[in-house]
């Protein structure tokens, strides 16, 4: 289902509008990291992954494991825009009785491949899915989105070793490298530098890109798919809050929703 670049770019704007609208309606949530991951997810769901919104349980679908569960808004928007559930439902985010939980629940909403919210746990799940596919002789791929701050969790590096050890080439990790976490810049909290070298030393194929350049994003997914003897990681340099000037590169927008005035300003900037 590869759409053309202009359509994808328009879709990215649409998703960004959804994110600010959803979090504003909820009065809470995580716009910053959601906005930084938009191209990465739009690229996957609209140009790369094998999936079918009519069959969310299709056994041979490619999987998307969201490890940084707090960016649920971007995933919900992309799933709704892909047709997994009505777009109107997006505004129920975080409300009592909603299928759109504050952090994703795979039992609550079609299209969600894992439940997450406690950081550091997704890559292990991606590995397990890849091992299951190998045993079942299925050829689906497993994508796993991680935050950069999340890489401070020890379990991530356990999983990094496991994927390399079992040569899980169907696993593609994606790091949303926006360099901001709640307490400030990642390099000031607990630094990751040199990040690409770390993954390389753990025997991963490393692809470094600008995570807001759709052409680079799509090329990276293709490159990862062609690596057959090791897992791949895409280190996507991004801007937290991308697309909304007053949110960009401000740590405070990690976990706070825009008010009505801020929403109007954001939507004006994100107009087509």
């Amino acid at each position: 289902m590869r759409a053309d670049l202009q359509e994808l770019k328009a879709l990215c704007k649409e998703v960004r509008r959804d994110i600010v609208k959803m979090t504003a309606a909820a009065g809470s949530g995580h716009p910053g990291g959601s906005l930084s991951s938009v191209e990465l997810l739009v690229g996957l769901y609209f140009a790369k992954m094998r999936h079918d919104p009519q069959r969310p349980d299709w056994a041979d679908r490619d999987r998307f494991i969201l490890s940084k569960g707090h960016v649920a808004p971007v995933l919900y928007s992309v799933l709704a825009r892909a047709g997994y559930f009505p777009v109107e439902e997006l505004l129920t985010l975080r409300k009592l009785g909603s299928r759109l939980q504050g952090h994703p629940s795979m039992l609550s909403l079609p299209g969600i491949d894992n439940s997450s919210g406690s950081l550091g746990q997704g890559l292990s799940q991606a590995n397990g899915l890849a091992l299951a596919a190998r045993l079942n002789k299925q050829d689906y791929r497993v994508y796993c989105l991680l935050g950069d701050g999340e890489l401070q969790e020890g379990q991530v590096w356990e999983a990094v070793m496991t994927a390399a050890h079992y040569k899980l080439s169907s696993v593609c990790a994606i790091v949303d490298y926006n360099n901001l976490q709640i307490d400030g810049p990642v390099e000031e909290v607990i630094g990751l530098h040199p990040l690409a070298d770390k993954w390389q030393a753990f025997n991963w194929h490393v692809i470094s890109i600008d995570g807001h350049d759709l052409e680079q994003v799509l090329a990276a997914y293709d490159e990862a798919e062609n690596v057959k003897d090791k897992p791949s990681v895409i280190i996507a340099k991004t801007i937290k809050g991308k697309g909304v000037s007053f949110m960009e590169n401000v740590a405070g927008w990690h976990g706070r929703a825009p008010n009505q005035e801020e929403l109007a300003k954001a939507l004006a900037e994100l107009a087509n």
Binding site: R63, I65, D113, N114, Q121, G122, L123, S124, Q125, A126, N127, G128, L129, A130, L131, A132, A133, L135, N136, Q138, Q155, A159, T162
Partner: peptide, 9 residues
Amino acid sequence: GTAAGLAMG
């Protein structure tokens, strides 16, 4: 976590 993924599969 790996066991969880295997169960998902």
